[in-house]
């Protein structure tokens, strides 16, 4: 036993409540990032490994086949890899954002219940929601950048398209991250819920959203899946931004509006569910 007396000024002295409330979401993000940092090596290895494998297999394998048949201007007048890159980036960013909004939410409500610990401070349900989203977007940004490095190394994209592609991928990440956060905050016990989402929602969405081939080559009755799919909106936006795929201004606005409203709507719904669940 030691008999050291603690220094003690009291919360009234040391806690600046206005500052603490204003920065609350960022403090939540700090907690998430610190959790993530435990996996940093894996995050970076997967972040680099995935695109490398994918580009070798699909991009170069399938791509050279496609390009060989179409003389290097396979789709939209560009090579297959350039066509594919926006979809791959959006897909990777979406996956990263969903990883960081799904499991952390189960962790926060069920496994570790640390959302309840946050909620016991001045932090509010909304600051927790925003904080988790900030962290998930940081993770998505890291993943997207790593992917872009690989794409540059494979000469799949140009330097000029790095920033536009980053923007479209992040819009996709935000939209899906917020939607997943709202969905995951409803889960009361994890009965393979995410496996179901992955298999029956995400996988078909990737297939019918113009990821690997233009949506116009689908039979007309399957095309609506693409139209409602946020993946298509993100991918098409990426194509417009990266290699200047011609687009009507109204459709351009719809792409951005669609993704932004999914982000805002998902966040608002998540905020309400969080508030309900944390008021115990």
């Amino acid at each position: 036993m030691n008999s050291t007396k603690m220094t003690w000024q009291g919360a009234a002295q040391i806690v600046d409540i206005k500052k603490a409330i204003f920065w609350g979401p960022w403090y939540v993000a700090e907690q998430r990032l610190r959790n993530m940092s435990k996996w940093l090596v894996s995050l970076i290895s997967f972040g680099l490994g995935n695109p490398i494998l994918f580009l070798f297999a699909i991009g170069l394998g399938v791509g050279s086949l496609v390009d060989a048949n179409a003389g290097g201007k396979a789709i939209d007048g560009v090579g297959y890899l350039a066509f594919l890159a926006p979809a791959l980036l959006a897909g990777a960013a979406i996956q990263a954002a969903m990883d960081e909004t799904s499991f952390p939410t189960l962790q926060g409500f069920l496994w570790e219940k640390n959302f309840f610990a946050m909620n016991a401070t001045h932090l509010t349900p909304n600051s927790i929601v925003i904080g988790v989203l900030i962290a998930s977007l940081i993770r998505a940004a890291l993943t997207t950048l790593l992917y872009e490095i690989v794409l540059i190394l494979f000469s799949a994209i140009t330097w000029a398209s790095v920033l536009p592609l980053f923007v479209s991928a992040m819009l996709a990440a935000g939209a899906f991250g917020a939607a997943m956060l709202a969905t995951a905050s409803k889960v009361v016990d994890d009965d393979g819920f995410f496996a179901i989402v992955g298999r029956f929602v995400i996988a078909p969405m990737m297939l019918f959203s113009g990821t690997y081939f233009p949506i116009a080559s689908l039979p007309i009755y399957l095309q609506p899946i693409g139209w409602i799919s946020p993946v298509w909106h993100a991918t098409n936006l990426g194509r417009v931004l990266s290699y200047g795929l011609p687009i009507e201004p109204w459709l351009f606005a719809i792409h951005i509006g669609y993704l932004l409203s999914m982000f805002v709507g998902g966040s608002l719904i998540a905020g309400r569910i969080f508030a309900k669940r944390l008021d115990s």
Binding site: Y27, E112, T121
Partner: peptide, 30 residues
């Protein structure tokens, strides 16, 4: 902001180190 709460069941950040739990919680308060 002026309360300290010890709930009936612990809700620590189990993946984090012991000192990090204290640090992160202090960060919440800015």
């Amino acid at each position: 902001a002026h309360l300290g709460v010890v709930p009936q069941s612990d809700n620590l950040d189990r993946e984090l180190k012991v000192w990090e739990n204290l640090f992160i919680y202090g960060r919440y308060f800015g």
